[in-house]
Amino acid sequence: MDFRTRTLRLSRRAACLAGAAFAAGLMLPLVAQADDYPSRPIKLVVPGTAGGGMDVIARVIGDKISASLKQPVVVENKAGAGGNIAVDYVAKAAPDGYTIVIGQTAHFSINPSLYAKLPFDTIKDFIPVVMLAESPNVMVVGAQSPYKTLADVVKAAKESPDGLALATPGNGTVSHLTGELFQKAAGIKFTHIPYKGAAPALTDVMGGRVPVMLSSVPTALSQIKAGKLRPVAVSAVKRSPALPDVPTIGEQGYPGFDAGTWYGLLVPAGTPPDVVKKLNAAANEAIKLPEVREKILAEGGDVVGGTSDQFATMLKADYDKWSKVVKESGAKID
């Protein structure tokens, strides 16, 4: 072997070792990031205004996660475009666990089919961390309504040549699409009356101007407790802890009927698995606390919890279900 050949081989070996060392160096910050996480404040983004039901849940959960992880959790409200502004913001955030979104059914399972084009993919661009809670819709009528049960509502719808008027907070909402699911299950027709928000819809139902409404439990709960609305059914497979005396749609002749809203934490795709595990553990620990469970119950929710994988499986199934309903309903927002 001549000197030149030997030198060339040594140079190649040195280059390989240097490359390996460089790659290892690049990996060190990622490992350290997961091991040291969190080392600074965490941002929890809420796709809505301050004071709403989701905001209330975010703040109580954020406080407990902060105590568990020994870092501040700062809630940031980003309302607009049906939650799409907030979701897009988090989708484009660094995948380091320092930007989280509290999302729900409408944002992640319905909007992708409802809106003509979104700048993000709710399945590919996010990692589900934990499903915090779920809340069914509730079918309500005015306190003076002749309808006492779900059977009364179905009978009235069948007897109405143009279909029974059904109020919802808006086109493409969970309430609207729950109505679409139910009219198919019951073989009836509703005339959908979409309002710009729940408040005016509730006012018209309480005043007898519209006979029936589908609403989230948190939205209608105070008026139900005040005796201004009569609940006739909830849309989940089991009764709502917030309305234990109200039978489910399934109990009243439509077994297996299940529609409602879930709330959960998600992070950008690419977030390190160890970071996701830490967030999942902290959130599960938080929702086991009596004060947190009571707050979620007061907002009409039922605590869930579980693993990241369980949430991911549920999200995909929920996405597929609502995509089909949106398509069949013809609902669209440009």
Rank of each mutant, 00 (worst) to 15 (best):
T191F: 10
L69F: 11
T149Q: 07
S222N: 15
F257Y: 14
P290V: 07
K78G: 00
L114E: 02
L221A: 10
K78Q: 10
V275C: 15
A18V: 12
I296S: 12
R293K: 15
G305R: 04
I85N: 06
L164I: 14
A20K: 00
S175N: 11
N284I: 03
A242Q: 07
T122R: 10
L202M: 07
A281L: 06
A14Y: 01
V153Q: 08
T307S: 12
V141R: 02
G305H: 05
V129E: 03
V46E: 04
G51T: 07
K78H: 05
R239T: 11
Q71R: 02
V75L: 11
L26H: 00
K43W: 04
S113Y: 04
D63M: 00
F108W: 03
H176W: 08
A185T: 11
T149G: 06
F190K: 03
D35M: 03
I102L: 10
W322Y: 15
P194D: 12
K196T: 15
L132Q: 00
D258T: 11
K316M: 08
N84Q: 13
E285F: 12
P146C: 09
A233W: 07
D318P: 01
A21K: 04
F182C: 09
K228P: 01
G53Q: 11
G97Q: 12
A226Q: 13
G187R: 08
Q71N: 02
L214H: 15
F108Y: 04
P200S: 10
L69N: 08
F126L: 01
V325Y: 02
V267W: 14
T49L: 12
A259L: 08
R4N: 15
L10Q: 07
N111A: 13
R293Q: 14
N84D: 14
V73P: 08
M131E: 10
V56L: 15
V267H: 13
S11T: 15
G264V: 02
A199D: 05
R6T: 12
D125S: 10
N171W: 09
V276R: 08
D55I: 06
G187F: 13
M1I: 13
S39M: 04
G170Y: 01
S329H: 08
L177N: 05
K158W: 08
G142R: 01
G305Q: 04
R59P: 06
M139W: 12
T122I: 09
V138C: 06
E328F: 03
